[in-house]
């Protein structure tokens, strides 16, 4: 189980904490999504987990142990695939293992297994530029798996893809999760994506983030897209959108109005 206990965090130079006394927990082996408007602080929760930022007070516990001294307990998959353009697909997938000092023969064997798992065993020698956006994300997922952790942090991994690729990768990811028995924490601002994938959804709607409202998705696995049109799911979808809007308004009050984007 992953547990946040009264966690407070403030960015350097900021006037107020972004997260204050936040507590929540995630069961092992579940698929959980965190949703919220842009700038709500959901990605910061990942940054605290993967060690890029450090909490000011409180505790983050994994199986009852403080994560501050732990290494390689979670694998992070960012929004952009961030594949190394100078390396082949196989070498990209091996990256976390190279860092961890895994023997070369073992690296190759694990990479081949992971690439087969994501259905890309035949592109090991290709370069990222030779792959489509969807294939690149699958390679990035294989790389995330190669880090060897049971907790996967996926930060809007499909947001840069076109609609059709996105929904087919959602189905594919769900299939992978059911096979792999990993805990997935998934960040998105796409409510339908969160509903389709997750067992439970947390909504970030405060500034500072003091609590996240938790919703259980009343659908069993395996799931199909048709399930999303059920009335209880539609009601939940509307409720989640309403919560996100409220949160967005609260954040704008604190931060000032959102500027229109260029282009």
């Amino acid at each position: 189980m992953l547990e946040f206990k009264k966690v407070t965090f403030q960015y350097e130079g900021a006037d107020h904490p972004l997260i204050e006394n936040l507590s929540f927990s995630i069961e092992k082996g579940t698929f959980t999504s965190i949703i919220g408007a842009s700038g709500s602080g959901k990605s910061t929760i990942f940054r605290l987990l993967n060690g890029l930022e450090h909490i000011r007070s409180g505790e983050i516990l994994l199986e009852g142990k403080d994560i501050s001294g732990m290494k390689n307990f979670c694998s992070y998959m960012p929004q952009n695939d961030l594949l190394l353009p100078w390396s082949t697909v196989e070498k990209n997938v091996c990256l976390p293992m190279r860092i961890q000092g895994v023997k070369k023969a073992q690296q190759k064997e694990i990479a081949a297994r992971m690439l087969d798992l994501v259905g890309l065993g035949d592109v090991a020698d290709k370069y990222p530029r030779e792959l489509s956006g969807g294939m690149r994300q699958r390679v990035a997922f294989a790389r995330t798996l190669c880090a060897g952790s049971d907790l996967l942090l996926l930060d809007e991994p499909f947001s840069a893809l076109d609609y059709l690729t996105r929904i087919s990768l959602q189905e594919w990811l769900l299939d992978q999760w059911m096979k792999l028995n990993k805990t997935i924490l998934f960040i998105t601002h796409d409510v339908e994506e969160a509903l389709f994938l997750s067992k439970e959804i947390y909504v970030v709607a405060d500034r500072p983030v003091r609590r996240m409202e938790r919703y259980e998705v009343p659908m069993d696995y395996p799931r199909t897209r048709e399930m999303l049109i059920r009335s209880e799911i539609q009601e939940l979808k509307e409720e989640l959108i309403r919560k996100m809007r409220e949160g967005d308004e609260r954040i704008r009050k604190v931060r000032g109005p959102r500027l229109p984007r260029k282009g």
């Binding site: 993967n50 060690g51 890029l52 290494k71 390689n72 979670c74 694998s75 992070y76 960012p78 961030l82 190394l84 990256l95 976390p96 860092i99 961890q100 880090a147």
Partner: peptide, 9 residues
């Protein structure tokens, strides 16, 4: 990219 490398240790 540098942060990703950081997360891998």
């Amino acid at each position: 990219m540098l942060e990703l490398m950081d997360t891998y240790g």
